[in-house]
């Protein structure tokens, strides 16, 4: 469903992606792990055209991703994004955030969008917060609204960019359990994360990225439990046993 072929990307003189080749199948949950600055987030941002890439190819359901082509709008409505810092629109209520895309981009009738928006907020456990503005919500609640906003586009896949990294530890669980439910329902997901427990339990596949290349990839349990590459072993040791 999502194909990356030999993708290269530089910021100025720094090459952050050095030939990434990977694919995500329909219904698959892929976690991308790796140290900070390894290029994990850049991969996600290239997939929905928030960043351009210098060479190689990215396609979503056969359509090439080009952030300057008109086709990018249709790709973005098929592949939603959830951000580390939520990026909810603070001047709109939770419900208005959720229906913004359906009503103003996909031109759905407002009444239908409102009804589905309320159902989605209920699905993420925030039915009673529909009329609240984001600054009055906790980080975990904001992120769940952001997930509902992503779902409202009825996407074929959702990209999660470190969705729990900006949250207080006690709020992480609520967000992860919403994501786990999505995975159980068969949503295609690409998740950049530092939550190794989530990756182990929920992901079908894990990619370990370091220095702009995929160092190791495979079924979640084998990469996380029996990493083959020395850099993967070292990274996992540091993450799982920081002391």
């Amino acid at each position: 469903m999502i194909e990356l072929t030999n993708v290269h990307k530089s910021f100025g003189k720094v090459e952050v992606l050095k030939g990434i080749t990977a694919s995500v199948e329909k219904g698959e949950v892929v976690c991308i792990i790796g140290p900070s600055g390894s290029g994990k987030s850049t991969i996600l941002r290239c997939i929905n055209g928030l960043e351009s890439y210098d060479s190689g190819d990215i396609s979503v359901e056969g359509a090439r991703v080009d952030r300057n082509a008109p086709s990018i709008v249709s790709i973005r409505t098929q592949v939603s994004m959830v951000f580390q810092r939520f990026n909810l629109f603070p001047h709109r209520t939770a419900l208005e955030n959720v229906i913004e895309g359906p009503v103003y981009v996909k031109k759905e009738p407002r009444a239908a969008a409102l009804e589905r928006g309320r159902a989605l907020l209920a699905q993420v456990g925030l039915a009673e917060k529909a009329e609240v503005h984001p600054p009055q919500l906790s980080g975990g609640q904001q992120q769940r609204v952001a997930i509902a906003r992503a779902l409202a586009m009825q996407p074929k896949a959702i990209l999660f960019d470190e969705p729990t990294s900006a949250l207080d530890p006690e709020l992480v669980g609520d967000v992860l359990s919403v994501m786990r439910k999505l995975a159980d329902d068969g949503m295609t997901m690409v998740v950049v994360t530092h939550e190794m427990g989530f990756a182990r339990d929920v992901a079908d596949r894990v990619l370990f990225i370091d220095g702009g290349v995929i160092v190791e990839q495979g079924p979640a349990k084998s990469v996380l439990n029996q990493p083959q590459h020395a850099r993967t072993q070292d990274f996992l040791r540091r993450v799982l046993h920081p002391l």
Partner: peptide
């Protein structure tokens, strides 16, 4: 206005004009 706001608008498929009108200018 935070760059994340513009990215969130783009990520739901808004173009430049719509991003300005619906997200940036009201804030």
């Amino acid at each position: 206005i935070d760059k994340g706001q513009i990215e969130a608008a783009q990520a739901i498929g808004m173009g430049w004009r719509q991003t300005m009108r619906r997200v940036v200018l009201p804030q």
